[in-house]
Nucleic acid binder design. Structure first.
Length: 259
DNA sequence: ATGACTCATACAATGAGA
């Protein structure tokens, strides 16, 4: 089973690039971030015609997440628990009904810039809420994974120029500490379980020829519960997508699990 | 470097992204 995450930076803007990648990569499940669309405006028929179920959690203009799946989905929930006043659409969950079901969480973790400030406070509070949700999921001792745009550069090797990010919300010590707290619950960074060393990125800024200079960062991650990690057979980054026509600034990151 | 580029909203200029 191939499960991917892809921050598409606007579903309308990626109306050609996303189907192109789906046709090439043939993922079974895709968590999308930054659909930048309300649910009613999402072009669901296009993806249904390609064989995908479509579950969205959108909002007007910004943010928004979705799950596309060739396999049936059950128990779909929208929103990260823990703050009834939070109106930002950044979290969706569904159980993928394979022979051995997998709970999939799709997430778009807040950017947090500028830091310090209220946006950074929101990021850290959101990460604390995520940690609480993951404790509840881990207690079930079932396979699950969290796929999305974490807006976290975990280590220096995950940036081409780590020194340029030292005061940025994606790389501040408090950010990396909060991310490690989540990992240390017992989750596995699937990509790092399979691929070592620097030079592996999932985002390149549109500005200053970042792609041509390979000035990237690795911020899109798939974290696996122990029961999902036991089934991990592969992981990768589809970096060539960044060189396509009208690309997102992110590329897909994926894992394969034993069925 | 309050930069650059892209997207959405709205139809000009601005906010947000990372």
């Amino acid at each position: 089973m191939l499960i991917a995450t892809f921050n598409i930076n606007g579903i309308k803007a990626r109306i050609d690039a996303l189907p192109r990648w789906l046709t090439t990569a043939k993922p079974d499940v895709v968590c999308l971030q930054e659909i930048k669309s309300v649910d009613a405006s999402f072009p669901r028929e296009m993806f249904e015609d390609m064989g995908y179920r479509v579950e969205t959690h959108g909002q007007k203009g910004f943010n928004g997440v979705a799950i596309l799946s060739r396999l049936p989905l059950e128990d779909v929930t929208r929103g990260l628990p823990g703050d009834e006043t939070d109106e930002q659409s950044r979290w969706i969950e569904a159980t993928v009904m394979a022979p051995r079901p997998v709970r999939v969480c799709g997430l778009y973790l807040p950017n947090g810039n500028p830091a310090p400030g209220p946006k950074y406070d929101y990021k850290l509070a959101w990460m604390a809420r995520m940690e609480t949700r993951l404790r509840a999921l881990l207690a079930l001792e079932e396979p699950f994974l969290c796929a999305g745009d974490y807006n976290v550069i975990p280590q220096a090797q995950d940036a081409a120029k780590p020194e340029a990010w030292e005061t940025d919300a994606l790389y501040l010590p408090q950010t990396r500490q909060a991310y490690r707290r989540i990992l240390n619950l017992g989750l596995l960074d699937a990509f790092r379980a399979r691929v070592q060393g620097p030079g592996h990125y999932s985002f390149w800024d549109y500005q200053a020829n970042a792609w041509e200079r390979n000035n990237g960062i690795r911020i899109d991650h798939l974290l696996l519960s122990p029961q999902a990690a036991d089934r991990l057979t592969g992981a990768g980054i589809d970096r060539e997508v960044r060189a396509g026509d009208k690309p997102s600034d992110h590329v897909p990151v994926w894992v394969t699990l034993e069925d």
